[in-house]
């Protein structure tokens, strides 16, 4: 039997598309309440790694564990579907392009899954929608369709939608990369709030300042490997690897 001691555990993750090896033996542990940021150049495999956590992209090798249960279990198709659907209820995910359901209002976006999967009454569903949208500061737009919201507002609704399932873990894949610069802060504020509530989070981001201010640990990835990993003070201020230094020089040049 495997000894399960970390909240999230990625063991020897390997992923290939044909002959292209996108993830090369990556291991990562995240403790309950921890926030880990993943940084690195475009194409380095950050999204692939994050999407392996809820098996949106299946690994070709390695294991992912959450709270003592293996996510990417080897099961027959039907059983696996059942298992993964249950696992995903515990793993919230926020996408770069929001992926809000355009045919549903903010309220309906938030309550669709809880209603369907947890059988909430109409009353409880409404309460949940108000609660979650309040949390992201979108209560005043509760009956708006996504087409009438700004990018930042859409992303905040998308976060509320994920939170409504009461996940144990939140994954953010460049949640602010598609936003106009002036809309980035409102989304970062929401993520900061989650951090204060000790939500366990894995955040793929291009925003070094934000990463430095909220995360407990930073992972620098390049070409499918973790080049450097450590607390933000070290990785951002005193990186030990040349590749990290070079990457940070490019990315902090504007910010300095």
């Amino acid at each position: 039997m495997t000894d399960q001691s970390h909240f999230v555990e990625i063991r020897h993750a390997q992923k290939s598309y044909g002959t292209l090896e996108v993830l090369k033996d990556i291991s990562l542990n995240v403790e309950r309440g921890q926030i880990v940021a993943i940084i690195g150049p475009s194409g380095s495999g950050k999204s692939t790694l994050l999407r392996a956590v809820n098996d949106l992209d299946s690994l070709t090798g390695g294991e992912v564990w959450l709270d003592g249960v293996q996510v990417n279990k080897d099961l027959p198709h039907r059983q696996y579907e059942k298992h993964i659907n249950a696992m995903r209820q515990d793993i919230g995910m926020v996408f770069q392009h929001f992926n809000l359901f355009p045919h549903l209002t903010a309220r309906e976006n938030v309550v669709m899954a809880p209603k369907m999967l947890k059988g909430l009454s109409k009353e409880d569903a409404n309460k949940l929608a108000e609660e979650q949208l309040e949390k992201v500061g979108m209560l005043d737009r509760i009956d708006y369709y996504p087409s009438r919201l700004s990018g930042g507002q859409k992303q905040r609704v998308a976060i509320a939608r994920a939170l409504a399932m009461k996940p144990k873990l939140m994954l953010f894949d460049e949640a602010t990369s598609a936003l106009d610069p002036e809309l980035v802060d409102e989304v970062n504020m929401v993520m900061k709030k989650l951090a204060e509530e000790h939500m366990t989070m894995i955040i793929v981001t291009h925003e070094m300042d934000f990463a430095a201010s909220v995360c407990d640990r930073v992972l620098f990835m390049d070409q499918g490997v973790v080049v450097e990993e450590g607390p933000p003070e070290i990785v951002f201020k005193n990186p030990t690897k040349d590749r990290t230094r070079e990457f940070l020089r490019k990315h902090l040049a504007g910010a300095a």
Binding site: N54, M93, F101, M116, M165
Partner: peptide, 8 residues
């Protein structure tokens, strides 16, 4: 993807 991520 968004729908499946929620557990649907």
């Amino acid at each position: 993807e968004a729908a499946r991520t929620l557990g649907l």
